[in-house]
């Protein structure tokens, strides 16, 4: 019976209860959220520390015209942020995009 008081109080106070849509619309992630990984190519020096430190082997170092650079495979990534911490030049960043569902696995490679 005691919860009755709670229900009436909160409903009377019109406490704002955050609701999102049926497929996740309206959910805002805070700016500190660890979301999709990205690379600032100009800062990358090709040291390969990110590949060594990644716990889920989601980073592969490839050669491109400017030298070595990482490719992130987001289907293996666990969004821990270790690559961002290991990078000595702060070339890796994590945006705050919360939902990453895709229909094609190729979209999950960050080249």
């Amino acid at each position: 019976m005691s919860v009755l008081r709670d229900i009436i109080e909160r409903r009377v106070r019109r406490e704002r209860i955050r609701r999102c849509g049926p497929t996740g619309e309206g959910v805002e992630a805070s700016p500190s959220y660890r979301g999709r990984v990205g690379l600032k190519r100009e800062l990358c020096i090709g040291c390969s520390l990110c590949e060594k430190d990644c716990p889920s082997a989601a980073i592969k170092i490839v050669q491109d015209e400017k030298g070595k650079r990482p490719v992130f495979f987001l289907d293996r990534c666990m969004f821990c942020g270790q690559c961002k911490e290991s990078c000595p030049t702060k070339a890796i960043y994590m945006s705050s995009e919360p939902e990453l569902p895709v229909f094609d696995r190729k979209e999950l490679e960050v080249r």
Binding site: V3, I7, R10, I17, R19, P22
Partner: peptide
């Protein structure tokens, strides 16, 4: 409603 949920919706 008592649990601050929506119940059947769609």
């Amino acid at each position: 409603w008592m649990q601050f949920r929506a119940g059947p919706l769609s």
